[in-house]
Design a protein around this nucleic acid. Structure first.
Length: 483
DNA sequence: TGAAATGTTGGGGCG
DNA sequence: ACGCCCCAACATTTC
Protein backbone atom coordinates (compact mmCIF):
# COMPACT_ATOMS: atom_id res chain seq x y z
CA UNK A 1 0.00 0.00 0.00
CA UNK A 2 1.24 3.49 -0.85
CA UNK A 3 2.44 5.61 2.02
CA UNK A 4 0.33 8.54 3.25
CA UNK A 5 1.32 11.99 2.07
CA UNK A 6 -0.05 15.31 3.30
CA UNK A 7 -1.24 18.15 1.08
CA UNK A 8 -1.73 21.38 2.99
CA UNK A 9 -4.30 23.37 1.03
CA UNK A 10 -4.54 27.14 1.40
CA UNK A 11 -5.28 29.52 -1.48
CA UNK A 12 -5.38 26.68 -3.99
CA UNK A 13 -8.81 25.14 -3.51
CA UNK A 14 -8.96 23.28 -6.82
CA UNK A 15 -8.09 19.90 -8.24
CA UNK A 16 -6.74 20.86 -11.68
CA UNK A 17 -3.38 22.62 -12.05
CA UNK A 18 -2.67 22.11 -8.39
CA UNK A 19 1.03 21.21 -8.25
CA UNK A 20 1.02 20.15 -4.59
CA UNK A 21 -1.93 17.86 -5.10
CA UNK A 22 -0.63 16.59 -8.43
CA UNK A 23 2.81 15.60 -7.22
CA UNK A 24 1.53 14.26 -3.91
CA UNK A 25 -0.92 12.04 -5.79
CA UNK A 26 1.97 10.54 -7.74
CA UNK A 27 3.75 9.51 -4.58
CA UNK A 28 1.17 8.28 -2.10
CA UNK A 29 -2.26 8.19 -0.54
CA UNK A 30 -3.23 11.83 -0.18
CA UNK A 31 -4.37 13.43 3.06
CA UNK A 32 -5.82 16.80 1.97
CA UNK A 33 -5.72 19.21 4.88
CA UNK A 34 -7.15 22.66 5.44
CA UNK A 35 -6.19 24.57 8.57
CA UNK A 36 -7.97 27.65 9.88
CA UNK A 37 -4.83 29.33 11.20
CA UNK A 38 -5.75 30.97 14.50
CA UNK A 39 -2.23 32.31 15.00
CA UNK A 40 -2.71 34.82 12.17
CA UNK A 41 -1.77 38.44 12.76
CA UNK A 42 -4.66 40.87 13.01
CA UNK A 43 -4.41 42.64 9.70
CA UNK A 44 -4.36 39.33 7.90
CA UNK A 45 -7.56 38.07 9.47
CA UNK A 46 -10.06 37.30 6.79
CA UNK A 47 -12.89 39.69 6.08
CA UNK A 48 -16.50 38.61 6.33
CA UNK A 49 -16.99 38.23 2.58
CA UNK A 50 -13.81 36.18 2.24
CA UNK A 51 -14.89 33.93 5.10
CA UNK A 52 -18.17 33.33 3.36
CA UNK A 53 -16.41 32.52 0.12
CA UNK A 54 -14.02 30.24 1.94
CA UNK A 55 -16.87 28.37 3.62
CA UNK A 56 -18.49 27.50 0.33
CA UNK A 57 -15.15 26.75 -1.31
CA UNK A 58 -14.31 24.24 1.37
CA UNK A 59 -17.73 22.65 1.27
CA UNK A 60 -17.42 22.13 -2.47
CA UNK A 61 -13.84 20.93 -2.33
CA UNK A 62 -14.81 18.44 0.36
CA UNK A 63 -17.48 17.11 -2.00
CA UNK A 64 -14.92 16.78 -4.76
CA UNK A 65 -12.65 14.91 -2.34
CA UNK A 66 -15.29 12.34 -1.38
CA UNK A 67 -15.77 13.94 2.00
CA UNK A 68 -12.12 13.37 2.86
CA UNK A 69 -10.95 16.96 3.27
CA UNK A 70 -9.49 17.15 6.77
CA UNK A 71 -10.35 20.45 8.41
CA UNK A 72 -8.61 21.79 11.50
CA UNK A 73 -8.48 24.94 13.52
CA UNK A 74 -5.44 26.12 15.43
CA UNK A 75 -1.67 26.33 15.05
CA UNK A 76 -0.66 24.83 11.69
CA UNK A 77 2.70 23.49 12.89
CA UNK A 78 1.21 21.66 15.88
CA UNK A 79 -1.53 20.20 13.70
CA UNK A 80 0.84 19.10 10.94
CA UNK A 81 3.22 17.51 13.46
CA UNK A 82 0.36 15.57 15.05
CA UNK A 83 -0.83 14.43 11.63
CA UNK A 84 2.65 13.28 10.68
CA UNK A 85 3.09 11.44 13.94
CA UNK A 86 -0.18 9.56 13.73
CA UNK A 87 -0.47 8.81 10.03
CA UNK A 88 3.19 8.03 9.48
CA UNK A 89 3.29 10.52 6.60
CA UNK A 90 6.87 11.41 5.75
CA UNK A 91 6.20 13.99 3.12
CA UNK A 92 4.13 17.14 2.90
CA UNK A 93 3.32 19.22 -0.18
CA UNK A 94 1.95 22.72 -0.40
CA UNK A 95 1.61 25.56 -2.86
CA UNK A 96 3.27 28.78 -1.76
CA UNK A 97 1.44 31.71 -0.25
CA UNK A 98 2.93 35.13 -0.88
CA UNK A 99 1.69 37.45 1.85
CA UNK A 100 4.40 38.58 4.27
CA UNK A 101 2.89 36.80 7.23
CA UNK A 102 2.45 33.56 5.31
CA UNK A 103 6.01 33.67 3.98
CA UNK A 104 7.39 33.99 7.49
CA UNK A 105 5.07 31.36 8.89
CA UNK A 106 5.68 28.86 6.11
CA UNK A 107 9.44 29.17 6.23
CA UNK A 108 9.40 28.57 9.98
CA UNK A 109 7.11 25.58 9.57
CA UNK A 110 9.24 24.22 6.75
CA UNK A 111 12.35 24.42 8.88
CA UNK A 112 10.65 22.83 11.89
CA UNK A 113 9.25 19.99 9.80
CA UNK A 114 12.58 19.34 8.14
CA UNK A 115 14.27 19.14 11.50
CA UNK A 116 11.92 16.29 12.42
CA UNK A 117 12.85 14.43 9.27
CA UNK A 118 9.81 15.30 7.20
CA UNK A 119 10.30 16.11 3.54
CA UNK A 120 8.61 19.33 2.46
CA UNK A 121 7.84 20.20 -1.15
CA UNK A 122 6.55 23.66 -1.98
CA UNK A 123 5.35 24.81 -5.41
CA UNK A 124 4.14 27.84 -7.25
CA UNK A 125 0.39 27.48 -7.71
CA UNK A 126 -0.74 31.11 -7.55
CA UNK A 127 1.50 33.25 -9.73
CA UNK A 128 2.70 33.37 -13.32
CA UNK A 129 6.20 34.46 -12.32
CA UNK A 130 7.87 34.12 -8.96
CA UNK A 131 8.45 37.65 -7.62
CA UNK A 132 12.14 37.07 -6.90
CA UNK A 133 12.90 36.03 -10.49
CA UNK A 134 11.97 39.34 -12.12
CA UNK A 135 14.55 42.08 -11.62
CA UNK A 136 16.11 44.93 -13.52
CA UNK A 137 19.62 44.55 -14.92
CA UNK A 138 21.09 45.93 -11.70
CA UNK A 139 19.21 43.35 -9.61
CA UNK A 140 16.77 45.79 -8.03
CA UNK A 141 13.01 45.35 -8.43
CA UNK A 142 11.01 47.24 -11.03
CA UNK A 143 8.95 50.15 -9.79
CA UNK A 144 6.97 50.86 -12.93
CA UNK A 145 4.42 48.45 -14.35
CA UNK A 146 5.10 48.65 -18.07
CA UNK A 147 8.82 47.80 -18.00
CA UNK A 148 8.11 45.23 -15.27
CA UNK A 149 5.68 43.49 -17.58
CA UNK A 150 7.23 44.07 -21.01
CA UNK A 151 10.90 43.73 -20.17
CA UNK A 152 10.73 41.74 -16.95
CA UNK A 153 7.93 39.22 -17.34
CA UNK A 154 7.56 38.79 -21.08
CA UNK A 155 11.27 38.30 -21.65
CA UNK A 156 11.49 35.83 -18.75
CA UNK A 157 10.79 32.14 -19.32
CA UNK A 158 7.04 31.68 -19.87
CA UNK A 159 4.82 30.44 -17.03
CA UNK A 160 4.71 26.67 -16.84
CA UNK A 161 1.82 24.89 -18.52
CA UNK A 162 -1.15 24.00 -16.31
CA UNK A 163 -1.14 20.51 -14.83
CA UNK A 164 -4.06 18.12 -15.32
CA UNK A 165 -6.37 17.04 -12.56
CA UNK A 166 -4.64 14.14 -10.79
CA UNK A 167 -6.02 10.69 -10.19
CA UNK A 168 -6.33 10.65 -6.43
CA UNK A 169 -5.98 7.83 -4.02
CA UNK A 170 -7.18 9.27 -0.76
CA UNK A 171 -6.15 8.29 2.72
CA UNK A 172 -9.41 7.37 4.37
CA UNK A 173 -8.58 6.22 7.90
CA UNK A 174 -10.43 7.88 10.71
CA UNK A 175 -8.18 10.47 12.35
CA UNK A 176 -10.34 11.48 15.26
CA UNK A 177 -9.19 8.92 17.77
CA UNK A 178 -5.62 8.85 16.52
CA UNK A 179 -5.13 12.55 17.05
CA UNK A 180 -6.93 12.89 20.34
CA UNK A 181 -3.73 12.24 22.28
CA UNK A 182 -2.20 15.42 20.85
CA UNK A 183 -5.12 17.59 21.74
CA UNK A 184 -5.67 18.04 18.02
CA UNK A 185 -9.07 17.33 16.56
CA UNK A 186 -10.31 17.47 13.02
CA UNK A 187 -13.46 19.52 12.92
CA UNK A 188 -16.52 19.94 10.83
CA UNK A 189 -16.68 22.85 8.41
CA UNK A 190 -19.50 24.46 10.36
CA UNK A 191 -17.32 24.52 13.47
CA UNK A 192 -15.06 27.06 11.80
CA UNK A 193 -17.96 29.52 12.02
CA UNK A 194 -17.01 31.11 8.74
CA UNK A 195 -20.53 32.32 8.02
CA UNK A 196 -21.65 35.42 9.89
CA UNK A 197 -24.91 35.52 11.79
CA UNK A 198 -25.94 38.48 9.68
CA UNK A 199 -28.10 37.21 6.80
CA UNK A 200 -26.09 39.50 4.50
CA UNK A 201 -24.06 36.56 3.25
CA UNK A 202 -27.07 34.98 1.54
CA UNK A 203 -26.89 37.77 -1.01
CA UNK A 204 -23.38 36.71 -1.91
CA UNK A 205 -24.41 33.18 -2.76
CA UNK A 206 -27.23 34.56 -4.92
CA UNK A 207 -24.56 36.16 -7.08
CA UNK A 208 -21.80 33.60 -7.01
CA UNK A 209 -21.58 29.90 -7.57
CA UNK A 210 -18.49 29.05 -5.60
CA UNK A 211 -17.01 26.03 -7.35
CA UNK A 212 -14.07 25.17 -9.55
CA UNK A 213 -16.46 24.40 -12.41
CA UNK A 214 -18.14 27.80 -12.07
CA UNK A 215 -14.76 29.50 -12.44
CA UNK A 216 -14.26 27.68 -15.73
CA UNK A 217 -17.74 28.61 -16.92
CA UNK A 218 -16.88 32.25 -16.30
CA UNK A 219 -13.58 31.93 -18.14
CA UNK A 220 -15.29 30.28 -21.09
CA UNK A 221 -18.07 32.86 -21.17
CA UNK A 222 -15.47 35.59 -21.04
CA UNK A 223 -13.34 34.32 -23.90
CA UNK A 224 -16.36 33.42 -26.03
CA UNK A 225 -18.58 36.42 -25.48
CA UNK A 226 -16.66 39.27 -23.88
CA UNK A 227 -13.05 39.25 -24.97
CA UNK A 228 -13.76 40.85 -28.34
CA UNK A 229 -15.19 43.98 -26.75
CA UNK A 230 -13.10 43.88 -23.59
CA UNK A 231 -10.82 46.92 -24.09
CA UNK A 232 -13.80 49.26 -24.55
CA UNK A 233 -16.54 47.45 -22.68
CA UNK A 234 -14.62 47.00 -19.45
CA UNK A 235 -15.03 50.68 -18.61
CA UNK A 236 -18.83 50.58 -18.61
CA UNK A 237 -20.13 49.22 -15.31
CA UNK A 238 -23.63 48.51 -16.60
CA UNK A 239 -22.24 46.10 -19.18
CA UNK A 240 -21.19 42.58 -18.40
CA UNK A 241 -17.86 42.98 -20.11
CA UNK A 242 -15.30 41.81 -17.56
CA UNK A 243 -14.24 38.33 -16.55
CA UNK A 244 -15.33 38.49 -12.87
CA UNK A 245 -12.72 35.84 -12.13
CA UNK A 246 -11.02 37.71 -9.29
CA UNK A 247 -12.63 35.89 -6.32
CA UNK A 248 -11.94 32.53 -7.92
CA UNK A 249 -8.32 33.54 -8.41
CA UNK A 250 -8.01 34.65 -4.80
CA UNK A 251 -9.01 31.25 -3.43
CA UNK A 252 -7.50 29.29 -6.26
CA UNK A 253 -10.64 27.82 -7.80
CA UNK A 254 -8.79 28.75 -10.96
CA UNK A 255 -5.10 29.52 -11.43
CA UNK A 256 -3.53 32.40 -13.34
CA UNK A 257 -1.70 29.87 -15.50
CA UNK A 258 -4.98 28.29 -16.53
CA UNK A 259 -6.37 31.70 -17.45
CA UNK A 260 -3.15 32.72 -19.20
CA UNK A 261 -3.03 29.68 -21.45
CA UNK A 262 -6.73 29.08 -22.00
CA UNK A 263 -7.47 32.66 -23.02
CA UNK A 264 -4.51 32.70 -25.42
CA UNK A 265 -5.62 29.45 -26.94
CA UNK A 266 -9.23 30.60 -27.32
CA UNK A 267 -8.37 34.15 -28.29
CA UNK A 268 -5.76 33.33 -30.90
CA UNK A 269 -8.02 34.27 -33.82
CA UNK A 270 -6.64 37.02 -36.02
CA UNK A 271 -7.95 40.38 -34.93
CA UNK A 272 -8.18 39.50 -31.25
CA UNK A 273 -4.53 40.12 -30.40
CA UNK A 274 -5.11 43.54 -28.96
CA UNK A 275 -8.06 42.46 -26.83
CA UNK A 276 -6.14 39.48 -25.55
CA UNK A 277 -3.17 41.67 -24.74
CA UNK A 278 -5.36 44.06 -22.76
CA UNK A 279 -6.82 41.19 -20.77
CA UNK A 280 -3.49 39.52 -20.06
CA UNK A 281 -2.14 42.85 -18.90
CA UNK A 282 -4.80 42.92 -16.20
CA UNK A 283 -3.66 39.50 -15.05
CA UNK A 284 -0.17 40.99 -14.98
CA UNK A 285 -1.36 43.82 -12.74
CA UNK A 286 -2.27 41.16 -10.21
CA UNK A 287 1.25 39.80 -10.57
CA UNK A 288 2.67 43.30 -10.14
CA UNK A 289 0.75 43.67 -6.88
CA UNK A 290 2.25 40.47 -5.51
CA UNK A 291 5.62 41.55 -6.81
CA UNK A 292 5.37 44.85 -4.96
CA UNK A 293 4.18 43.19 -1.77
CA UNK A 294 7.02 40.69 -1.93
CA UNK A 295 9.66 43.38 -2.33
CA UNK A 296 7.95 45.85 0.02
CA UNK A 297 6.18 43.79 2.68
CA UNK A 298 5.05 46.84 4.61
CA UNK A 299 2.88 48.35 1.85
CA UNK A 300 -0.12 46.85 3.66
CA UNK A 301 0.19 49.59 6.27
CA UNK A 302 2.93 52.06 5.24
CA UNK A 303 2.93 54.55 2.41
CA UNK A 304 5.40 53.34 -0.18
CA UNK A 305 6.22 56.97 -0.85
CA UNK A 306 7.17 58.35 2.58
CA UNK A 307 6.37 61.87 1.45
CA UNK A 308 2.75 60.96 2.15
CA UNK A 309 3.48 60.28 5.81
CA UNK A 310 2.87 63.97 6.42
CA UNK A 311 -0.37 64.08 4.45
CA UNK A 312 -3.08 65.91 6.43
CA UNK A 313 -5.78 63.23 6.28
CA UNK A 314 -9.04 64.05 7.95
CA UNK A 315 -10.39 61.55 10.42
CA UNK A 316 -14.16 61.71 10.14
CA UNK A 317 -15.76 58.36 10.95
CA UNK A 318 -19.27 59.60 10.28
CA UNK A 319 -18.35 60.69 6.74
CA UNK A 320 -16.56 57.43 6.14
CA UNK A 321 -19.73 55.69 7.26
CA UNK A 322 -21.75 57.57 4.64
CA UNK A 323 -19.31 56.34 2.02
CA UNK A 324 -19.53 52.76 3.26
CA UNK A 325 -23.31 52.80 3.21
CA UNK A 326 -23.56 54.33 -0.26
CA UNK A 327 -25.14 57.51 1.10
CA UNK A 328 -22.79 60.21 -0.21
CA UNK A 329 -25.40 61.79 -2.46
CA UNK A 330 -23.33 61.13 -5.60
CA UNK A 331 -25.17 58.42 -7.51
CA UNK A 332 -22.25 56.66 -9.22
CA UNK A 333 -20.36 56.49 -5.92
CA UNK A 334 -23.36 55.22 -3.99
CA UNK A 335 -24.22 52.67 -6.67
CA UNK A 336 -20.71 51.27 -6.43
CA UNK A 337 -20.73 51.04 -2.66
CA UNK A 338 -24.12 49.36 -2.73
CA UNK A 339 -23.01 46.92 -5.40
CA UNK A 340 -20.17 46.02 -3.06
CA UNK A 341 -22.50 45.49 -0.13
CA UNK A 342 -25.04 43.52 -2.11
CA UNK A 343 -22.77 41.32 -4.17
CA UNK A 344 -19.33 41.33 -2.51
CA UNK A 345 -17.98 42.79 -5.73
CA UNK A 346 -17.60 46.12 -7.49
CA UNK A 347 -16.89 46.93 -11.10
CA UNK A 348 -13.28 47.97 -11.55
CA UNK A 349 -13.86 51.47 -12.90
CA UNK A 350 -16.26 52.19 -10.09
CA UNK A 351 -13.66 50.96 -7.59
CA UNK A 352 -11.35 53.69 -8.89
CA UNK A 353 -14.11 56.28 -8.59
CA UNK A 354 -15.18 55.43 -5.04
CA UNK A 355 -11.55 55.19 -3.94
CA UNK A 356 -10.71 58.55 -5.45
CA UNK A 357 -13.78 60.01 -3.76
CA UNK A 358 -12.83 58.72 -0.31
CA UNK A 359 -9.14 59.56 -0.53
CA UNK A 360 -9.33 62.85 -2.41
CA UNK A 361 -12.75 64.46 -2.12
CA UNK A 362 -13.30 63.25 1.44
CA UNK A 363 -9.59 63.42 2.26
CA UNK A 364 -9.72 60.25 4.34
CA UNK A 365 -6.78 57.89 4.78
CA UNK A 366 -6.57 55.06 2.26
CA UNK A 367 -6.36 52.62 5.20
CA UNK A 368 -10.05 53.23 5.87
CA UNK A 369 -10.99 52.29 2.34
CA UNK A 370 -8.63 49.33 2.26
CA UNK A 371 -10.09 48.01 5.52
CA UNK A 372 -13.67 48.27 4.25
CA UNK A 373 -12.80 46.60 0.96
CA UNK A 374 -10.94 43.88 2.85
CA UNK A 375 -14.04 43.12 4.87
CA UNK A 376 -16.63 43.28 2.10
CA UNK A 377 -15.01 42.11 -1.14
CA UNK A 378 -15.27 38.44 -2.05
CA UNK A 379 -12.03 38.93 -4.01
CA UNK A 380 -10.25 40.66 -1.11
CA UNK A 381 -6.56 40.12 -1.79
CA UNK A 382 -3.90 41.60 0.46
CA UNK A 383 -1.52 42.32 -2.42
CA UNK A 384 -4.03 43.82 -4.85
CA UNK A 385 -5.90 45.67 -2.13
CA UNK A 386 -2.80 47.31 -0.66
CA UNK A 387 -1.14 48.10 -3.97
CA UNK A 388 -4.34 49.41 -5.55
CA UNK A 389 -5.31 51.70 -2.69
CA UNK A 390 -1.81 53.14 -2.66
CA UNK A 391 -2.06 53.52 -6.42
CA UNK A 392 -5.27 55.53 -6.14
CA UNK A 393 -3.99 57.56 -3.19
CA UNK A 394 -0.92 58.53 -5.19
CA UNK A 395 1.62 57.12 -2.74
CA UNK A 396 2.21 53.73 -4.40
CA UNK A 397 4.44 52.33 -7.11
CA UNK A 398 3.75 53.78 -10.54
CA UNK A 399 0.80 55.48 -8.89
CA UNK A 400 -1.86 57.65 -10.40
CA UNK A 401 -0.65 61.24 -10.01
CA UNK A 402 -2.28 62.76 -6.98
CA UNK A 403 -3.82 65.52 -9.04
CA UNK A 404 -5.80 63.01 -11.06
CA UNK A 405 -9.02 63.52 -9.16
CA UNK A 406 -12.08 61.91 -10.67
CA UNK A 407 -15.22 63.99 -10.94
CA UNK A 408 -17.98 61.48 -10.10
CA UNK A 409 -20.54 63.41 -12.14
CA UNK A 410 -18.43 63.55 -15.29
CA UNK A 411 -17.29 59.96 -14.90
CA UNK A 412 -20.87 58.85 -14.40
CA UNK A 413 -22.01 60.75 -17.47
CA UNK A 414 -19.17 59.30 -19.49
CA UNK A 415 -19.35 55.66 -18.45
CA UNK A 416 -22.96 55.21 -17.35
CA UNK A 417 -24.64 57.76 -19.56
CA UNK A 418 -28.19 56.44 -19.22
CA UNK A 419 -27.71 55.59 -15.57
CA UNK A 420 -28.41 51.88 -16.05
CA UNK A 421 -25.86 50.91 -13.41
CA UNK A 422 -27.13 53.55 -11.00
CA UNK A 423 -30.75 52.48 -11.41
CA UNK A 424 -29.78 48.87 -10.76
CA UNK A 425 -28.32 49.60 -7.34
CA UNK A 426 -30.19 52.75 -6.28
CA UNK A 427 -33.83 51.92 -6.88
CA UNK A 428 -34.98 55.13 -5.22
CA UNK A 429 -33.50 57.06 -8.14
CA UNK A 430 -34.65 54.71 -10.86
CA UNK A 431 -37.49 56.93 -12.09
CA UNK A 432 -35.28 60.00 -12.59
CA UNK A 433 -34.72 61.04 -16.19
CA UNK A 434 -31.21 60.25 -17.46
CA UNK A 435 -30.51 63.96 -17.70
CA UNK A 436 -30.57 64.20 -13.89
CA UNK A 437 -29.53 60.71 -12.89
CA UNK A 438 -25.99 61.88 -12.07
CA UNK A 439 -27.06 65.22 -10.60
CA UNK A 440 -30.38 64.82 -8.79
CA UNK A 441 -29.73 68.06 -6.90
CA UNK A 442 -30.02 69.96 -10.17
CA UNK A 443 -33.45 68.60 -10.98
CA UNK A 444 -36.43 70.88 -10.45
CA UNK A 445 -38.91 70.20 -7.68
CA UNK A 446 -41.39 69.03 -10.29
CA UNK A 447 -38.96 66.54 -11.85
CA UNK A 448 -38.03 65.18 -8.43
CA UNK A 449 -41.66 64.86 -7.40
CA UNK A 450 -42.51 63.11 -10.64
CA UNK A 451 -39.72 60.59 -9.96
CA UNK A 452 -40.77 60.12 -6.35
CA UNK A 453 -37.48 61.52 -5.04
CA UNK A 454 -37.29 63.65 -1.93
CA UNK A 455 -33.72 64.84 -1.63
CA UNK A 456 -32.50 64.59 1.92
CA UNK A 457 -35.19 62.02 2.69
CA UNK A 458 -35.42 59.22 0.14
CA UNK A 459 -31.93 59.94 -1.18
CA UNK A 460 -29.22 62.12 0.38
CA UNK A 461 -28.16 65.52 -0.81
CA UNK A 462 -24.52 65.64 -1.92
CA UNK A 463 -22.33 65.36 1.17
CA UNK A 464 -19.68 67.72 -0.15
CA UNK A 465 -18.91 70.32 -2.76
CA UNK A 466 -16.95 68.77 -5.62
CA UNK A 467 -15.11 71.88 -6.63
CA UNK A 468 -14.14 72.93 -3.12
CA UNK A 469 -13.11 69.44 -2.03
CA UNK A 470 -11.04 69.00 -5.15
CA UNK A 471 -9.22 72.24 -4.45
CA UNK A 472 -8.71 71.24 -0.81
CA UNK A 473 -7.16 67.96 -1.92
CA UNK A 474 -4.81 69.76 -4.32
CA UNK A 475 -3.86 72.20 -1.56
CA UNK A 476 -3.19 69.36 0.86
CA UNK A 477 -1.00 67.69 -1.75
CA UNK A 478 0.83 70.93 -2.45
CA UNK A 479 1.55 71.32 1.25
CA UNK A 480 3.70 68.17 1.07
CA UNK A 481 6.07 69.78 -1.37
CA UNK A 482 6.98 72.62 0.96
CA UNK A 483 9.17 72.37 4.07
C1' DT B 1 -7.09 54.11 -16.78
C1' DG B 2 -8.29 63.36 -15.47
C1' DA B 3 -10.20 67.73 -14.79
C1' DA B 4 -10.14 72.49 -15.08
C1' DA B 5 -8.06 76.58 -16.57
C1' DT B 6 -6.06 78.79 -20.20
C1' DG B 7 -4.79 79.52 -25.00
C1' DT B 8 -5.74 79.29 -30.05
C1' DT B 9 -8.39 79.16 -34.10
C1' DG B 10 -11.92 80.00 -37.23
C1' DG B 11 -16.68 80.84 -38.71
C1' DG B 12 -20.60 83.80 -38.52
C1' DG B 13 -23.23 87.88 -37.12
C1' DC B 14 -23.13 92.53 -37.30
C1' DG B 15 -22.09 97.43 -37.48
C1' DA C 1 -14.85 94.84 -47.55
C1' DC C 2 -13.34 95.18 -42.96
C1' DG C 3 -12.79 94.94 -38.09
C1' DC C 4 -14.78 93.47 -34.06
C1' DC C 5 -17.04 90.46 -30.99
C1' DC C 6 -18.84 86.11 -29.61
C1' DC C 7 -18.24 81.54 -28.94
C1' DA C 8 -17.75 76.79 -30.08
C1' DA C 9 -14.22 73.53 -30.88
C1' DC C 10 -10.03 72.04 -30.17
C1' DA C 11 -5.19 72.17 -28.13
C1' DT C 12 -2.06 73.11 -24.40
C1' DT C 13 -0.80 73.77 -19.62
C1' DT C 14 -1.44 73.36 -15.03
C1' DC C 15 -2.87 71.28 -10.90
Amino acid sequence: MKSPVIVWLRHDLRLADNPALYYAAQSGRVIPVFIDDTTTADHCNLGAASRCWLHHSLAHLNDQLSDQLRIFQGDPLAILLALIQHTGAQTIHWNRCYTPHAITRDSQIKQALKSTGTTVHSYNGSLLWEPWTITKADGTPYKVFTPYYRKGCISAPPPSEPLPRPTLELYSDDLTTQLAANDVQPCDLTELNLLPNHPWHHRLTDHWEITEAAAWQRLQRFTNERLENYPQGRDYPALEATSTLSPYLQWGQISPRQIWYYSQQQGSHPGLEEQLDTFLKELAWREFSYYQLYHNPNITTENLNPRFNRFPWKNQPEQCHQWQQGMTGFPIIDAGMRELWQTGYMHNRVRMLVASFLVKNQCQHWHLGATWFWDTLVDADLASNSASWQWVAGCGSDAAPYFRIFNPVLQGQKFDAEGDYIRRFIPELSALPSRYIHTPWEASAAVLAEAGVQLGTTYPKPMLDLKASRQAALDAFASLKQQ
